[in-house]
């Protein structure tokens, strides 16, 4: 039987599947929170969730408006500091996965959350880095989760806030950075990166979405495997957990 689900729910489930039991995960707010709590309640009960401002493994009972909302710190194991979380855990190299959203990304998984327009001319300033640059620079791998539109997946982005593979190939490693983006999860498809050129590569297309729709909603041509597989849909239990326990007020899922 086919289940009804939204693209946000599919993205959260796809994000959860990327997380393994026992991993340490640095999380930004929104869909990454739903994905992480879903993984923790299903296949990854021993995962550790980190929020940059000094929160380890909270068990919220209400969704919050952001990381500054004490609702998302509820029942944490640790309430500490940036130097503790982003320093001793992340900078030291103890974070397995960074989970990031963004305004724009490019062929090599570089992320922009700073500004749109021309940084030397006319532009609109948005949010900036927060811990995103630190996470993208220091985590063993990062997962990018964002809506897919031509103006968001671009050949060239306005500003690199958080480094992906820079201009591709071995440029990231040469710059002295470990890790790098492993997946980009959108509302149309799941992408990976070519092991050598580090170009964005379609891994699976979501059920009901055509390959043409994926290509026509991005500003550059991704690598395409043959044949193209379909993204695994959510299970009834995953949907129940999201709707009844993790985000009953649909605060994160829109």
């Amino acid at each position: 039987m086919d289940l009804d689900y939204t693209t946000s729910e599919l993205m959260a489930v796809a994000g959860a599947r990327e997380l393994k039991d026992g991993e340490v995960v640095a999380v930004g707010l929104g869909l990454p929170v739903v994905a992480s709590f879903l993984a923790k309640r299903t296949h990854a009960p021993h995962m550790t969730i980190l929020f940059e401002l000094g929160v380890i493994d909270p068990q919220p009972v209400e969704p919050g408006v952001g990381l500054a909302d004490p609702r998302v710190w509820y029942r944490a194991n640790v309430l500490s500091s940036f130097v503790d979380i982003l320093g001793s855990v992340l900078h030291h190299g103890r974070v397995d996965v960074g989970f990031l959203g963004g305004l724009e990304t490019d062929r090599f998984g570089n992320l922009n959350t700073t500004l749109v327009g021309d940084p030397r001319g006319k532009f609109r300033h948005m949010i900036g880095s927060g811990g995103a640059n630190d996470i993208a620079s220091c985590a063993r791998r990062t997962i990018i989760i964002m809506r897919q539109e031509e103006r968001k997946l671009r050949e060239s982005i306005s500003f690199i806030t958080s480094p992906g593979y820079l201009s591709g190939g071995s440029r990231r490693a040469e710059a002295g950075l470990r890790g790098g983006p492993s997946k980009v999860i959108t509302d149309k498809a799941i992408f990976g990166f070519h092991p050598e050129t580090r170009e964005l590569m379609i891994l699976s297309v979501h059920p009901g979405v055509t390959l043409d729709e994926v290509r026509s909603t991005m500003g550059f041509a991704p690598l395409v495997p043959d044949p193209v597989t379909a993204t695994e849909p959510p299970t009834a239990e995953q949907l129940r957990l999201i709707r009844e326990e993790i985000d009953p007020e649909r605060m994160y899922m829109g």
């Binding site: 500091s81 940036f82 130097v83 982003l86 320093g87 900078h91 700073t114 940084p119 880095s129 640059n133 630190d134 620079s137 220091c138 500003f159 690199i160 806030t161 958080s162 480094p163 820079l166 440029r171 990231r172 710059a175 002295g176 950075l177």
Partner: peptide, 25 residues
Amino acid sequence: IAFRYLAGALGLPFMPIRSLVGSDL
């Protein structure tokens, strides 16, 4: 920024960091 404060707190002349490298920041 946290590391810049930490260097100031400890009276160190500078603080090395892995972040920022390769970025437009």
